[in-house]
Design a protein around this nucleic acid. Structure first.
Lengths: 158, 158
DNA sequence: GAGACAATGAAAGAAACTTCCACAGCAGAT
DNA sequence: ATCTGCTGTGGAAGTTTCTTTCATTGTCTC
């Protein structure tokens, strides 16, 4: 199981992955043409990429501001204790918070780094005071308000 | 221009946005059924959401490990000077680095927070030594290796 | 070469897309 | 109250696309 190295994709598979990463709603016919292969083959290839889990999903990206989520905030979290139970409890609770878009266990000055979307600063203050610092085992948080989203969710560079 | 508040969506629009956020490849027919509206209406609504920019794109999510990008790293960056030129130069250069998936200007201990994907630690070391610290105006960087991706790119909570 | 195997493209019935059209609901003016 | 314009709706129909089947091609091994 070589998880960290490229799976056995040929040039066609890679082209399909790249094309669908750019436009997930490409029709099979268009995709086939772009990849220089018949529709039938393209269909089979694409199906395989989905079935075998190389494509984990296709999502429409909704403009955050349009749905009242204009504010992006990063939060570093330090826990009280570094026990497996402590980590598990925090992770479980963080999973439940819908405002938490990403949650990563990291090595460095923090235990976790969270990416959070809310309507505005007032909303974040409320979330911070009522929910974040109340998450299990939280000793300290450090907030980084995002003032400008320079680059956001770029495509995977492969 | 009320950028931070919810645009004028009715319940149907919101349902469409949510459905496509979960599965961007839903056929118009399925979407129409799920939203309880005729195919024609659903098609028109969806088209509008794309045309008016409320859906900024539809992307297939490719399993990072499958394409040799198993390592995720967050990097905090502090610049030498806080001049507009300095920021612009850094942002321009960061945009060019394909390994940099996200780049955000933040308020707090750092000037920028970067999200980076590479094959492994060795790859990151190379990137860090050859490219990151060479970005224009960088005084200091702080690296956070992600040891566990607890939650990744969750859907927008609206 | 011969045989086994995997992958391919053409074809065709089924499904979906996308446009056109007539109609319903609603607001404002008369 | 009625008219009028406007917006949004669903049915229908022609066109496109999907998805399966099948015969064929190319490759590898012996």
């Amino acid at each position: 199981m070589k998880e960290t190295s490229t799976a056995d994709f040929d040039k066609i598979d890679l082209k399909i992955l790249r094309a669908l990463q750019s436009d997930g709603r490409l029709t099979n016919a268009d995709l086939a043409q772009r990849v220089n292969v018949s529709a039938a083959t393209c269909h089979r290839r694409t199906q395989r990429l989905f079935d075998e889990g190389y494509i984990t999903g296709v999502r429409a990206e909704v403009a955050p501001a349009a749905v009242g989520l204009g504010a992006l905030v990063m939060v570093g979290v330090v826990l009280d204790r570094s026990t497996p139970e402590s980590f598990a409890a925090f992770e479980g609770a963080a999973m439940e918070l819908k405002e938490v878009l990403d949650c990563n266990l990291v090595a460095g000055d923090f235990d976790y780094l969270l990416k959070i979307r809310v309507r505005d600063m007032a909303d974040f203050n409320k979330l911070h005071g009522e929910k974040l610092i109340a998450l299990p085992g939280v000793r300290q948080t450090r907030t980084f308000f995002v003032m400008k989203e320079v680059k956001e969710s770029a495509r995977l560079p492969f």
